[in-house]
C-alpha cells in the first residue's frame, strides 16, 4: 500500500445567532447607543452595572434604572500580551473589572494602556465611545487611563 498524500481542508462552522436581550439589558444597550451608561438599583440599595432583571438577594423584579458615571476605578485586571483575533484590540491591552462612579459592583471591559506598567489596581479610567454606536457592548470601544 502506497503512502497517500496528506489531505487538508480548511472550513468554518458558523452559528449565526441573534439573541434576545430582554427588557433590562435592552435598556442598557439602548442607553449605550445614546452614549450613556445605566445600572439598576437592587433591594439593598446597591447599584448594579450592567443592570440585571432580578434582585440578587430577593429575586424580585428590578426596575429602578440609575445613570452612572463615565469614569471609574480599576478593581482588578489581567494584561493581555498577545491579543487574539477575536479580542477587541490588536495591541496589548487589559481586561479589567471597572467600578464606575455611582456603581457598587464592577463590570468587565477592556482598558487601553501604553504598557503593563502603566496600569494598576485603583487606577482611574474613563469611557472611550465608538465612533458609531449601534446598541452593543462594543459601543464602549474601551476605557482609557485618566
Amino acid at each position: 500500500m502506497s503512502q497517500p498524500e496528506v489531505l487538508n481542508q480548511a472550513f468554518e462552522l458558523g452559528y449565526t445567532y441573534t439573541r434576545s436581550t430582554g427588557p433590562v439589558i435592552g435598556r442598557f444597550l439602548t442607553e449605550l447607543r445614546n452614549r450613556n451608561i445605566v445600572g439598576i438599583k437592587a433591594s439593598d440599595g446597591r447599584v448594579v452595572v450592567p443592570p440585571m432583571e432580578y434582585d440578587p438577594n430577593t429575586a424580585e423584579e428590578l426596575s429602578e434604572f440609575v445613570d452612572v458615571g463615565q469614569q471609574g476605578e480599576i478593581v482588578s485586571f489581567a494584561w493581555v500580551k498577545e491579543p487574539r483575533e477575536a479580542h477587541p484590540m490588536d495591541v496589548p491591552f487589559a481586561w479589567a473589572m471597572i467600578k464606575l462612579d455611582g456603581a457598587d459592583v464592577p463590570m468587565i471591559h477592556c482598558v487601553a494602556a501604553p504598557s503593563e506598567d502603566a496600569i494598576a489596581t485603583g487606577a482611574r479610567v474613563q469611557v472611550v465611545w465608538a465612533d458609531e454606536t449601534i446598541g452593543y457592548i462594543t459601543d464602549i470601544r474601551c476605557f482609557e487611563l485618566v
Binding site: 468554518e12 445567532y17 439573541r19
Partner: peptide, 9 residues
C-alpha cells in the same frame, strides 16, 4: 434595542 447579533465562528 431588543436583540443583539452574537454569531460564533
Amino acid at each position: 434595542v431588543t436583540v443583539v447579533k452574537a454569531p460564533v465562528y
